[in-house]
Simulated scan of single mutants.
Amino acid sequence: MEKSVSLQGKALILIDFQRGFEDPFWGDRNNPSAEENARGLIEVLRSSSGQIIHVRHLSSETGSPLAGPGAAFKRGFEPRSNETVYEKTVNSAFIGTTLEEDLRRAEVRELIICGLTTPHCVSTTIRMAANLGFSVELAHDACAAFTRNANVSFDGGPPPSANEIHRAAVYHLHGEFAQAVLTSDLVVRWQA
């Protein structure tokens, strides 16, 4: 007999899994498995009582890859009718949305967050979530960064690689704002 997974009081927040991040504008990226890992989390949550929340960035910048067709969700990340979508125009999913109020009304206290990009919208949302009192787990292998995330040198040195950008962002979040965890560990724990 299969065990039913209970994730009451938890929500998975998927940040900016959008087609615009397939544009060469962003440069090299790390972690080509990010989407596959995130879809694994979605699959587990859809078979449980946990909530799935989709966030997407609607850029107002002229020529942005995250406007028009690029604002659409990537294949495999299309929300189902019972899943909430929040649209933002800044890095944090809490700014200009009702995300905080809706989480509190649903008595969600624990968040699992993943998405694109690690140092920008993922990091900003996690920092705000922690400051608002939510317990946060960062599914770091379901996130990715691009060289565009740090393409301007502030000290004349060479820019970091996409993997260095990603790892630095995770290190800055882990222990202070979130616990960085592997998606496989989350799935094993949820199914235990």
Rank of each mutant, 00 (worst) to 15 (best):
A72D: 15
R109L: 11
Y171V: 10
P119M: 11
A178H: 02
V170I: 11
A71C: 04
S161G: 14
H166V: 07
G115T: 08
H166F: 09
G175V: 05
D185L: 13
I113Q: 01
E87V: 12
N149T: 04
D102I: 00
V122W: 05
A142H: 02
L132Y: 14
P119A: 11
P158G: 07
G156D: 09
T124R: 01
E110I: 06
I112W: 09
E87T: 13
P158C: 03
T117E: 07
A162I: 06
V108C: 05
I165T: 12
Q179V: 13
A180H: 05
T118L: 03
N163S: 15
L111P: 00
L186M: 15
G76M: 09
H174V: 02
V170Q: 01
L103A: 11
G70T: 05
D155Y: 13
T84D: 08
A71W: 05
R80M: 15
L99E: 03
A162D: 03
A144P: 00
G157C: 08
G70Q: 10
T147E: 12
D102S: 11
V136G: 01
C121F: 01
E78M: 09
S81I: 13
V90R: 12
R80N: 14
E110C: 02
P119W: 07
L173N: 01
V188I: 14
R148T: 03
L132N: 08
R109F: 11
Y86I: 10
L103R: 07
T124M: 09
A129L: 04
D141Y: 08
A168E: 06
A130V: 04
E100F: 01
A169N: 03
H120P: 00
R75W: 08
S161N: 04
R105A: 15
L173M: 14
G133C: 11
E176A: 14
E83G: 09
F94Y: 08
C143W: 01
R75D: 15
L182F: 12
E87C: 12
G133T: 06
A180T: 12
P119I: 04
S81Y: 07
E83S: 09
A130M: 09
A162V: 05
R167F: 02
G76Q: 10
R167S: 11
E101H: 10
P79N: 03
G175I: 06
V122Q: 02
T183D: 12
V187S: 11
I165N: 05
G157P: 10
V90S: 11
F73R: 05
R105I: 11
L116F: 12
R75N: 15
T125M: 04
D155C: 10
P79L: 00
S92Q: 02
F177I: 05
P69S: 10
V85E: 09
N151W: 07
A139R: 01
S123I: 03
E110R: 14
K88F: 08
F177S: 06
F177C: 01
C121V: 04
